[in-house]
Every structure is written in C-alpha cells, then in structure tokens.
Design a protein around this nucleic acid. Sequence first.
RNA 1: GGGGGCGUAGUGUAGCGGUCAACAUGUCGGCCUGUCAAGCCGAAGAUCGCGGGUUCGAAUCCCGUCGCUCCCGCCA
Length: 588
Amino acid sequence: MLKTHNCGELRAVHVGQRVTLAGWVHQYRGHGGLLFINLRDRSGIVQVVFEQESAPEAHAIADEARAEWVLQVRGTVRRRPAGTENLSLPTGEVEVAAEEVTVLNRAKTPPFYIDREAGEAEALRLRYRYLDLRRERMQRNLILRHRVVKFIRDFLDERGFIEIETPILTKSTPEGARDYLVPSRTHPGHFFALPQSPQQLKQLLMVAGFERYFQIARCFRDEDLRGDRQPEFTQLDLEMSFVEREDILQLVEELYTRLVEEVSDKKLLFKPFPRLSYHEAMTRFGKDNPDLRFGMELVDVSDLVGDSDYEVFRRVVAEGGQVKGLCAEGLAGYSRRQIDELNAFVQNYGAKGLAWLAIQEEGIRSSFTRFLNPGTVEAIIQRMKARTGDLLLLVADRPAIVAEALGRLRVELGDRLGLRDNNVLAMAWIIDFPLFHWNEEEQRWDPSHHLFTAPMPEDLPLLDTDPGAARGQQYDLVCNNYEIGGGSIRIHQREVQEKVFALIGLKMEEARQQFGHMLEAFEYGTPPHGGIAPGIDRLVMLLAGEPNIREVMAFPKTQSAADLMMGCPSPVSERQLQELGLALIERV
RNA sequence: GGGGGCGUAGUGUAGCGGUCAACAUGUCGGCCUGUCAAGCCGAAGAUCGCGGGUUCGAAUCCCGUCGCUCCCGCCA
C-alpha cells in the first residue's frame, strides 16, 4: 500500500504517529515559508502542513503542487496549535506535519471546482463525469447507493432468497415499452432485445423451483427520458412462490422500513405503510402515486352545484362529470395574475379552467359565486372546510380529467406552500388496481400492469360479465409522488391466463407465438407465485434528497439518451454493419 | 412528435441595438510562517453555441439549427 492511513480518519488519538497518506490536493494555501494542503481521499480531508524551516525539500515540492495533483505524504500527526482547529472538518483537531512528499501524478487544471459546486451546466459535469464523481456530493450518493444495495442483499439472503442473474440478451415482445435491439451476427435479420425487466425469466425461475429469487437487475426501455427516468435503470427484481399478496407486502414493507432507518436520516412518516385502493387514491388525491406528506385532499361538491344556475357546473354534472376542488390554505391573497397562472397550469392537463373562491377578511372574491345562491356558496365552504384566508380551486369535467388536473395542482400547491418536506418519506401501498383499462383507439382491454397479473379471486366472475370492474392482485409502492415499485400475484392457472389473452384481444395463435415458452412452462407444474420490482434509482434519489436520478447514477445519459463522456451512441464501421447484415437507410 | 427555460473568458454570472464586452472566481507571476473558499500586488484569458437575415451598426432584434434541461405525449 502507498498509504498507512486514510486522510479522513485521523483524529486526536493519532497524535504522535508517523503516517503515510496518499490522495488528491483538495485545496492549497501558500504563505511563503509555510503552506497548507488539504489532502483528500475517499475517506475525507486532512490538513497537511509544509514548513520550509523543518522540511525544506518537502516544502519546495509542495509549493509546486496544484489542485488535484496526486501526492504521497509522509509526516507526523500533531494537534493543531490552540485556536487554529477547524470544527467544520472531522479531522479538524489535528494536522499532519509533512516530512517527505512524492508527486504521484500531476493534474491539469480541472474544468470545474472539485471542492465546491458552482452550478455548472450539467452537460459539463457529464462530459467530465470522472471529475464530477470526485466531488463530495457524488461520492456520498454512490456510497449511499452501495449501502442500500448491500442492505437489500443481506436482508434477502437472511430470508432464504437466491440471487440469480438473467440474460441481458433476450427476446423482444410487443408489450410495454420500446425495446433496445441488438442484432444477431449468427442469425442475420434476427435481433435480441435488452430486457425491460426480467419479468418472464423470474416467473420461469419459480417454475424451476427456486421459490425465492431476487436480482439487482439492470433494465432497459427505449422511451423518452424524464428526471426520474433513464433508458437503463436498476430494479430490485423479486419473486416468491407459495405466497399471497400479504406476504409480499409484509416482506417489502419490513425491508424498506429497516432500510430507511439503517442507511438514511430521512424520517418515515408511516409505520406501518397505509394501504389505499386505487379508487381511493384517485378519489382523494387524483393520482395513483399520491404525495401523502400533506393533506389538501380533493373534495367533491358535484351534488351541491349540480342543479345550480352556473351553467358550467350544471352541464358537467348532468353529463356524468364531477365538480371537485382543493382548499389552498392561506392563499386567499393570490392576485388575479397568480390565479391565472394556476389556471394555465391545470389547462396543461386537459381541464378547461379553474373556478375559484377566495375568502378574504373583506369578504369573498370569486369567479363563480354570483351564479350561485348564498346557501350553496356556504355549503361549498363548509364541505371544503375553508376558513378565512383560504383559496378554493375547483375543476369541473370528466372524472379522469378532474383527477389529473387537481392531482397535479395539489402537488404544485404543496410545493408553493412548503408542505413537501424533503426529509420525510411517506411510503404507502396502492392496491386493488383495475385489472384492465379500456383502450379507446384499439377498442379492447389493455392490462393495467401486465398480462400475467392475477385477478382478485372474488372478481374472477367479472372477467365474463364486466372486465372493467375486475380488480387485479396488483400493488404499487409509492413515496412522495413517485411510484417506487410495482408488482403482482401472477396467474398460474391456464384457464385464467387464456381468458385474459382473449380479453386483451390476443388470439391463442399469437399468444403461442409470443409467449409460447411461458405457456409451455406453465404446463409443467407451476406454483402459485408473485413478486415485485422496486426501482433502486428512485429509492436512492429519495434517500439522498436529490431532485433527479442522474445524481445517484455514476454515468447517466442525457435527456436525449446520450453519454457525453463516452461519446455514444456513435457510428460503427461499414465492416461491422456488413457482418450483421445491416444497411443504414434515411429515416422518414 | 409538441411546449417552456438556458447557452457570453476555465467556471458562475452581468450586459439586452451604439467606446476597447463587465464582475467574481480560477489560471499564471510576485510578496507572505497559522491558513482553511487564506490575504495583498500584478498579468494573461472571449471568434458572446453555430449558420443566415434585418440594420449605418447585432452578444443584444428576427429565422433556422445544435446542445443541455423541465414538462406533455410516450413509459409502469
């Protein structure tokens, strides 16, 4: 080893010891005959003192050193002179008096500071990601990520789970997201697909009798990116045999509860996690991934305004729509301009606009009360538990649009009112999802989750009579307005599976072609099984308090799915294309 | 595919039709023995993302384009 100690571990107990350190020049402070270098390695930072008088050679060498040079320093740990301790450094009680120094490597001046963040364009950070990763924030995030994955592995290992790798080169299926394709050289014209998730393989591992499987699995989806979506990401993929929904929920809840308490300083708002049906989540919060850190629930006033003189409300209710609203506490003082802003906000989500009512000291200001009788206005205020100083915001439309618009608005208002505490994690289960949703364009039922999701046993008859009302044994884990995991109990009976295929308009022939291997496997004694696949990136993002998942990935892609450091994707040679039997054409 | 924001010395910003494009920081040189984002003095450093247009004159206005980012669509 080129070092005897780590920079960040030196304390008063080391005083008097001769140590050898190796690391990067974090900061340099020259005073002529005396100079200080803060030396950094992964463990942290320690101040090294170079004195011309006592160690002239070391001092001369150190005098040349600049930010990010790599040094090896031999010296003695000593207590800092009284009054010069630095409380902001864990090592701040001591310093290392350098006796010898070796330049292990010089460094060009970095394109940005390593010792601070100056709001650099993210493109620059990504171009020089290996330097960005030297910074405290990224080191902390990736170490946290390691601890999360380590905790998960240990936890599941203790409970009899086997970690099994599944192929990265696998089969394209028309379901779900767009696949990343890999051409086959040995089968010209044929392609592998990178897995969107190991869904089918983990079910086959249940058929294979492993009973408890997990994998820290890389998944790939060729869809447009978001702050919480990368083209490749990591899931804790997990599957169990001989279990019911309750077993999966209990296991994951215990895992996440202990994980949060073990590896982070975030506070879990709920123990145990509340369970909301999909219907309840949509009704109360307008989203199937609600932020439960605050209230401000959606309130239905359809019955109060359905027969009013306000044409907008009356017509919507008559046509089977809803009038629902939110009570934004303390926002009665919002200006016309600010309300217009919120109005434009909900219009992004399909709402025609907002009806609003501000209860001010001087009286009520509103866009619609002049169309209603005073009793109705009072009833709305009562129902929505509004008090002086509050602003009521209402949307009238089809239920889906009301939910979407108010669900989004609620989160926006939560931000504005400072109700979304970054130190709090509000984890919860969303259960009882509808098994299917109606696809208007294709005039057929689409699976809400995937086509192996089992119906709730008591809803089996509904598959024949009212498929839209059938609930699936599906569950999502949500936290702070993110979906951080989803899973289901799977179908293990052939008749049920065939019924689902039929409902989603998949002919048995096609099903056999696409899923023949699954159907065949299921005929050889399939245990009842189910699982879940929580996203690791989003979880670590929340634990780290980061605003996007790029900050918890070592080498993320840009929004256009490019790697600015590697410079990919990139063209390949004509020869490579020929070997694969590929020719490039202009895309229309 | 669509909408919003951003792009000016290495970095972060200012300048928004008219001297030589400004400030901070970093870089380089000098001074400096208790600093810790050290301090003081001095110097260098920009084809204002790229292309076109309007204008006597464009970093500034217009059009296009590229890159990054947020969002809708898409994605579970």
